[in-house]
C-alpha cells in the first residue's frame, strides 16, 4: 500500500473513531501500539513503567481524539502524549541517577578517547544477542535526562527546538545533553569492542 493510501486509510479510521466506531479505534490502537511501546520502553527503561505509559497514552487518545486537529500525524500526536506521560512519571518518582553520573563538567568518568577503528560491518552485530545486550545496557546506564534527549533527537528525529520544548529545557541545554549522551554511549560501546576484539 502506498503512503497516500495509507494516509487516506488512517484519516478515514480517525474520522470513524471520532464518530464512535469501536472497530476503527481498535485499528488505530493496533497500528500504533508497538511504536509507542518501544518509545515508552526506551524512555522508562523498564517494562512495567513502559506498559503504564502505553496504557495511559491510549487512554488519553480515547478521551481526547475528538480534539486531535490532524495538523500533525497521529503518531506524532501520540508520541508527544507518551513522552509527556513518561516525563511526568520521571518527575513523580524523582528518579535518582544510580549509575555513572554524566553531570560533571569535566567528564571524568569517560575514559575518553581510545582511538581505534571499530569492527567492520557493525550492522551485522545487531543480530548478536551479546551485542544487543551491550547496546541496551549502555542505554540503561545513561541517566534519564540524557537518555530522553538522545531518544528524542537522535532516534525520533525531533529538532533541537521541539526536544527542548517537550522537555521544558533550553535549546543550549538540549545540545549539551545530546553531546554528552552521544559521547557516553560511544565510550560504552568502545569498551565492549575492546573486550571482544580477540574473538571478533
Amino acid at each position: 500500500m502506498n503512503s497516500v493510501n495509507t494516509d487516506q486509510t488512517e484519516a478515514e479510521l480517525i474520522r470513524r473513531a471520532k464518530a464512535g466506531d469501536g472497530k476503527a479505534m481498535s485499528a488505530l490502537v493496533d497500528s500504533h501500539s508497538a511504536r509507542i511501546y518501544t518509545l515508552a520502553l526506551r524512555l522508562m527503561n523498564n517494562r512495567e513503567d513502559a506498559e503504564d505509559v502505553l496504557q495511559e497514552t491510549f487512554m488519553i487518545m480515547l478521551e481526547k481524539l475528538d480534539t486531535f486537529s490532524e495538523r500533525s500525524s497521529l503518531y506524532t500526536w501520540l508520541y508527544r502524549i507518551a513522552t509527556n506521560v513518561a516525563l511526568g512519571k520521571h518527575r513523580q518518582k524523582k528518579y535518582v541517577d544510580n549509575y555513572i553520573s554524566v553531570h560533571d563538567p569535566d567528564f571524568e568518568h569517560i575514559r575518553g578517547f581510545d582511538i581505534q577503528d571499530w569492527p567492520d560491518h557493525l550492522e551485522e552485530k545487531i543480530d548478536e544477542q551479546e551485542f544487543r545486550e551491550c547496546l541496551s545496557k549502555a542505554m540503561s546506564m545513561l541517566p534519564e535526562n540524557y537518555r530522553e534527549v538522545f531518544i528524542l533527537r537522535d532516534l525520533e528525529n525531533l529538532s533541537t527546538r521541539e526536544t527542548a520544548k517537550l522537555l521544558k529545557i533550553t535549546e543550549a541545554n538540549t545540545k549539551v545533553r545530546l553531546m554528552r549522551a552521544r559521547l557516553f554511549l560511544r565510550d560504552q560501546l568502545a569498551n565492549h569492542f575492546k573486550c571482544i576484539k580477540g574473538i571478533s
Binding site: 490502537v29 502505553l54 496504557q55 550492522e123 552485530k125 547496546l135 537522535d154
Partner: peptide, 27 residues
C-alpha cells in the same frame, strides 16, 4: 556509528502479545 546502531535497533518496534492484550482490555 554509535548513533546509527541505536537507530537500526529503534526500527524494530514490537509489542509482546500479553502487553497488547492488557492494553485492549484496559481500553
Amino acid at each position: 556509528d554509535t548513533i546509527k546502531l541505536y537507530r537500526v535497533t529503534q526500527f524494530e518496534s514490537s509489542i509482546p502479545d500479553d502487553v497488547s492484550d492488557r492494553l485492549f482490555k484496559k481500553l
